[in-house]
């Protein structure tokens, strides 16, 4: 069975990639399996400077999902490049650098650095980060700001595929997908977490110190599948389907909706070896569905 996928020029040996913020810098998972068994992974969101993240509590379980307000804690570009990259270069899997900035300048500066960093196979822009210059509204929820930041990064990313990770917290995601494609994106990641919250009824206050958090896990899968479906109709560039993938069936569901590959997030916490497990189960399911490759199923649910 051919599981190989060429995602906007990133060679994946299977369509299963670890999602940003759930996969550390990859190395955390080495004690569970050989990283060369998976298609690739997206790093924890990187910023120019290290970030300490939000106060606690940062997480809360919800029905078939969880809320997180980690606050984009990360080691920063320098430490990533000097401490993590030497180890990652020795591993035969695609390393996608997820990154964000608090200002337009930070996005562009970091994009240029990651484009030049040896061993990075692709860049994934997280545009769900609050824009400090615009009163904290996310870059990814104002279409003009989205276009500007994607164009800005595109201009400096010359060697590697540039993927934009869309925020689902918008009225019409297809409009954002088109704007990204029009601004030079090579691929899309759909979706980031949905804004949610939970209240501690005994203490009469929000559970998360940050009040709101990002909802992830199987609970969001139907929303994510719908958004992949809408984006597939809107653009030609490849799409990573993301949101609650927990089984080989879910992988196929995203692919049929229009994803060229999927990312697995929250379920890594529950079953740290879920990605290699899915890679093992997927061929069997594809055979049962009468498919000879992953690529022939991309978008089939849309009909001929």
């Amino acid at each position: 069975m051919d599981l190989n996928v060429d995602f906007a020029g990133i060679k994946l040996k299977n369509p299963l990639v670890g999602a940003s913020g759930t996969f550390g810098y990859g190395l955390t998972y080495e004690k569970f399996f050989d990283l060369s068994l998976i298609g690739g992974f997206c790093t924890k969101g990187l910023s120019m400077k290290p970030r300490e993240g939000n106060p606690t509590p940062r997480i809360c379980e919800t029905p078939s999902g969880m809320l997180n307000a980690i606050g984009l804690q990360n080691v920063g570009y320098e430490k990533f490049a000097t401490k993590k990259m030497p180890k990652l270069r020795k591993i035969s899997t695609a390393v996608i650098a997820n990154f964000f900035g608090e200002t337009m300048e930070e996005y562009i500066e970091l994009a240029a650095k990651l484009d030049a960093l040896e061993g990075i196979h692709g860049l994934e822009m997280n545009i769900s980060c609050p824009n400090v210059e615009k009163g904290g509204a996310a870059f990814g929820t104002d279409i003009r700001v989205t276009e500007a930041v994607v164009k800005g990064c595109r201009a400096v990313v010359k060697n590697k595929p540039l993927i934009v990770k869309l925020s689902p917290n918008v009225a019409d995601i297809a409009e954002f997908a088109r704007a990204c494609e029009g601004s030079g994106a090579d691929g899309l990641s759909v979706i980031n977490t949905l804004v949610g919250m939970a209240i501690d009824i005994k203490n009469r206050k929000p559970i998360l110190a940050n009040v709101t958090g990002g909802l992830s896990g199987p609970a969001i899968r139907p929303v994510a599948v719908r958004m992949v479906w809408q984006c597939y109709k809107a653009v030609k560039i490849p799409i990573f389907g993301i949101g609650g993938v927990a089984s080989a069936k879910d992988v196929v569901e995203f692919i049929m909706a229009g994803a060229s590959a999927v990312q697995v997030g929250t379920m890594n916490f529950v079953s740290p070896d879920i990605i290699p497990q899915l890679a093992e189960e997927l061929p069997e399911l594809l055979v049962r569905l009468g498919a000879a490759s992953v690529s022939e199923l991309v978008g089939v649910a849309h009909g001929g």
Partner: peptide
């Protein structure tokens, strides 16, 4: 006994505040 999502260092959800520093 902080709440934990993963238990092995991947989620950064379980952090404790280092005393006297702005660090977790």
């Amino acid at each position: 006994e902080n709440s934990m999502a993963c238990g092995f260092g991947a989620c950064l959800g379980c952090v404790a505040h280092v005393r006297g520093e702005k660090r977790y």
